[in-house]
């Protein structure tokens, strides 16, 4: 019994002692350094347009109109507090029907030919539901539609895509991609300043 109580006392004291270090000292150190060295990033990489906060450069946003590039399908409709995927399995009827529907809509929206292949990222939902990126192929296919809606030359839109294409890190890691919010913001700014 005595050992039992002694161990209990040690366990309680140890919980407090280690708790202060790993739940207090540690996060406060990281917070201080993060805020000092990378204040923008530590606070959510918020981006502004004409002084208004319009989003985070790391989180995707819903765009539906013809003047903007469209992001990937999202399980949570780009709600910042409901991250997650569809979790539909490969033989799910729901998944297959959704993909068929998206393919049709994508072809229609972007005036593609009947049998033309749709990029995989445009037809499938992301893991986080907040994926900020689309593939370069996906962006290029949307470019003529965006150009038409804005009354631009398609090459002008493609130039904006190219400026905002992120390659593989160190030429190796990840996939080439385009940030939808940033590219749309660039389009709006270019339009406002008259190129």
């Amino acid at each position: 019994m005595q050992t039992f109580l002694k161990e209990l006392r040690s366990a309680l004291a140890m919980t407090v002692a280690l708790g202060v270090i790993v739940c207090g000292v540690y996060p406060i150190l990281v917070y201080t350094m993060g805020q000092a060295f990378f204040p923008g990033k530590a606070n959510g990489s918020i981006i502004y347009h004409n002084g208004t906060a319009v989003g985070s450069s790391l989180l995707g946003q819903a765009f539906n109109g013809p003047r903007y590039f469209h992001p990937r399908p999202s399980a949570g409709g780009y709600d910042g507090t409901a991250s997650g995927g569809t979790n539909l399995g490969p033989t799910s009827k729901d998944l297959i029907e959704k993909v068929q529907e998206r393919v049709e809509r994508y072809r229609e929206t972007n005036s593609l030919a009947a049998g033309e292949l749709v990029p995989a990222d445009a037809a499938t939902a992301s893991a986080s539901g907040l994926d900020p990126h689309i593939s370069v192929e996906n962006a290029i296919l949307q470019a003529p539609r965006v150009a038409k809606a804005r009354g631009w030359d398609t090459n002008g839109v493609i130039a904006v895509i190219q400026q905002h294409t992120e390659g593989r890190t160190l030429g190796l890691l990840g996939e080439p991609r385009v940030n939808v919010l940033l590219v749309n913001l660039a389009l709006d700014e270019k339009e406002k300043t008259g190129k």
Partner: peptide, 23 residues
């Protein structure tokens, strides 16, 4: 997933539930 490519999607692997930056 052959069911997805049959729907007219480019055969670049299964991207359902995956992020574009990771592939």
């Amino acid at each position: 997933n052959p069911r997805i490519t049959a729907a007219g999607v480019a055969a670049t692997g299964n991207l359902e539930g995956k992020e574009a930056r990771f592939g």
